[in-house]
Design a protein around this nucleic acid. Structure first.
Length: 644
RNA sequence: GCCGGCGUAGCUCAGUUGGCAGAGCAGCGCACUCGUAAUGCGCAGGUCAACGGUUCGACUCCGUUCGCCGGCUCCA
């Protein structure tokens, strides 16, 4: 007999050889229908396998692992279809990924994305045949010779590695297609009805650019047609919000082309948004006790040699010559802030010293990785460096985290926190001594714990120069982006011998924290564009108000209203063109301007305006004074949080 | 950098087998003077990304360069 314990704590005995399918059916018909695979004591099994005693869980698509199993199965289906259409194809890896799956394949004479339709049809055909996934286990030798006979050199390479780890080798058969796979899989291809192929791209075998380039096909799969179409709709929405499309459309920026790849040119509207964002940032930083500084765009190579960038970051730097001396364009702001720190002898009394700058840096990124505003060669970092004593570490890190979260909440982003720690097995790779690392890592963890913030610790993700807290931000579509980062630095203070005079009159090594809230202003604005779909909150809207006289008889009144709005501090223009009012309203709506004042004969006579809110429509006529107040209230820059 | 795709008017896109460069929107002009998401008519707008080659003839075919897009381990 086999004794199974269910998640609710109840248990039941089954005959030896009972399969997962039968167990699921004994629980409920609904579960049997939704079941994809099962796990016993955390080990995953196919539903067709006989169950063993232990804690069983029937896994459905609602489980994160269930979704992975379904998608991984879909990747096998994809490979099977490709094998049928391109018998010469050889297969690499085909894992499930967030929201989908891919398969890397070497497909001779592959025609590119035009082949997706044909592959999709073949996949649909295989789904219709409802072919079972069948598992078999092989010895290492059998597996190697089997895949060698098929010419599957990538699989052979993988098997050899599995052999080194001492795992047994399993294969899965889907009709005539056999793939190396740990499993488990859904019972049959009929479960993969709601699958879609998305794109084709090149990918190096195992991600190494020294290896062969394979063809990667991306796809996604869901348990229901509705879930699939919702996901595809989300992808469409993301495309509509793409900052590379909205940015130029809204007159925010232009990038690439004659201005040079990876270099953003801010148009008047974008510059207005930036200016507002920067103004808010500066104000907030002053109130948080930062001293704002400004440092040059280039500095002698010597400075970068001392900082270590010259040796370790050289490939990303641009160089130039000044009177035969070598200079570097700055890729980071830290050395500049060091110069300012070192400008005078520092006392413990002036710590923590918080320096901040909107510093524009240039980094040489490889042409292929450039991506709109998200990955550029010239960008402005909202950089800050905190110089403090060991005792001040926890409260300083907390202050920055609180500050960062305030910023994210202000814009309506969600967040997840990661604490990136050193790899205890490789401490020799890091700058600084292990005891100091332990102290700094504890300070960061303590800071988070004390604040009651949830976070995920990731071993081995720290920078070589120190541990860090990374905050991932989640936008309106649920996508995550690199957000604020707070990094401890053991390296620079040692390299520059940064000290302060302690209360004992002796020189002490200063502690240093790098931090950025936006990260790159360019990328952050790219995120904002997509997050808001271009419908910025009033205070950031490049144009806050458009004045729309209905006929030319109201032009004079329109000018008066415009002047009043400008004097009130509203970013405003009057649209005096002769088109119909419907046409001009439509245009203002598509430009996502928050407010319009419509002025007709009645308004001009009575000294009123008829405001219209973007997305909401007509607000009804009111006095000019009242209307201006409505706009000002809506477009007010948020006041900075109270200090705790 | 590498693999694949793309590049025609400011934008979105047609352009057949190699045979005179097209439309809608935007712009400008004229008419219209209009009440909450597209008024009508007209005009102008191009080195078909650039350079080279094949050809009687190239937007079209070939090559090179530039730019843009999808990606380049989330490890069977």
């Amino acid at each position: 007999m086999v004794k199974l314990v269910f998640p609710d704590g109840s248990s039941k005995e089954y005959a030896q050889g009972t399969t997962g399918t039968e167990v699921a059916a004994s629980i409920s018909r609904g579960l049997a229908k939704k079941a994809l695979c099962c796990s016993v004591d955390g080990v995953m099994y196919d539903l067709s396998a006989p169950v063993v005693s232990g804690a069983i869980r029937i896994i459905t698509f609602e489980d994160e692992v269930g979704a992975e199993v379904l998608r991984h199965s879909a990747s096998h289906l994809l490979a099977a279809a490709v094998r049928n259409l391109y018998p010469g194809a050889r297969f690499g890896i085909g894992p499930a990924i967030r929201d989908g799956f891919y398969y890397d394949m070497d497909i001779p004479d592959f025609p590119g994305s035009s082949a997706l339709d044909a592959i999709s049809s073949e996949m649909k055909r295989l789904v219709g045949l409802n072919i079972p996934f069948e598992r078999a286990e092989l010895s290492l030798e059998e597996a190697v010779s089997f895949f060698e006979s098929m010419g599957e050199r990538f699989k052979v390479e993988l098997i050899r590695e599995i052999g080194e780890k001492g795992e047994k080798v399993s294969i899965y058969r889907l009709g005539s297609f056999v793939d190396l796979c740990r499993g488990p899989h859904v019972p049959s291809s009929g479960y993969l009805k709601h699958t879609a192929l998305l794109s084709v791209a090149g990918a190096y075998w195992r991600g190494d650019e020294n290896n062969q380039m394979l063809t990667r096909v991306y796809g996604t799969a869901f348990d229901t047609g509705e879930a699939l179409s919702n996901h595809l709709e989300l992808l469409e929405e993301a495309k509509r919000r793409d900052h590379r499309k909205l940015g130029p459309e809204l007159g925010l920026f232009t990038i690439g082309g004659p201005g040079g790849p990876g270099l953003a040119y801010w148009l008047p509207n974008g510059a207005a948004l930036r200016e507002e964002l920067e103004g808010f940032w500066k104000e907030a930083h002053r109130r948080q006790g930062y001293k704002l500084v400004v440092t040059p765009h280039m500095a002698p190579a010597e400075l970068w040699k001392t900082s270590g960038h010259y040796d370790y970051y050289r490939e990303n730097m641009y160089f130039t010559e000044v009177e035969k001396g070598e200079y570097a364009i700055k890729p980071m702001n830290c050395p500049g802030h060091i110069i300012i720190y070192q400008n005078e002898k520092r006392s413990y009394r002036e710590l923590p010293l918080r320096l901040a700058e909107l510093g524009t840096v240039y980094r040489c990124e490889r042409s292929g990785v450039l991506h709109g505003l998200m990955r550029v060669r010239g960008f402005t970092v909202d950089d800050g460096h905190i110089f403090c004593t060991a005792d001040q570490m926890v409260s300083e890190v907390q202050g920055v985290i609180r500050f960062a979260l305030y910023f994210l909440r202000l814009f309506g982003f969600g967040y997840d926190i990661e604490l990136s720690l050193s790899d205890p097995d490789n401490m020799e790779h890091y700058a600084g001594v292990p005891e100091e690392w332990a102290k700094a890592e504890k300070a960061m963890a303590d800071a988070l714990d004390e604040m009651g913030e949830k976070y995920k610790s990731v071993l081995g993700e720290a920078a070589f120069y120190g541990p860090k807290v990374d905050i991932k931000m989640r936008d309106a579509l649920g996508r995550t982006w690199q957000g604020p980062t707070i990094q401890f630095d053991f390296n620079i203070p040692a390299r520059f011998n940064l000290t302060y005079v302690g209360d004992d009159g002796k020189e002490q090594r200063v502690y240093m924290v790098h931090r950025a809230l936006f990260g790159s202003e360019e990328r952050f604005i790219g995120n904002l564009i997509e997050h808001f779909a271009g419908n910025f909150p009033g205070w950031l809207a490049p144009v806050q108000l458009i004045i729309l006289p209905i006929t030319s008889s109201q032009h004079e009144y329109a000018r008066k209203v415009e002047i009043a709005a400008l004097e009130a501090g509203i970013r405003c223009t009057a649209d005096l063109r002769s088109g119909t009012i419907g046409y001009r309203i439509r245009e203002a709506e598509t430009r996502k301007v928050p407010f319009m004042f419509v002025l007709g004969e009645t308004e001009a006579r009575e000294g009123t305006v008829a405001p219209r809110r973007h997305g909401k429509g007509d607000l009804g006529a009111m006095s000019l004074e009242k209307a201006l107040k409505v706009v000002l209230d809506d477009c007010a820059r948020p006041s900075f949080m109270e200090r705790r």
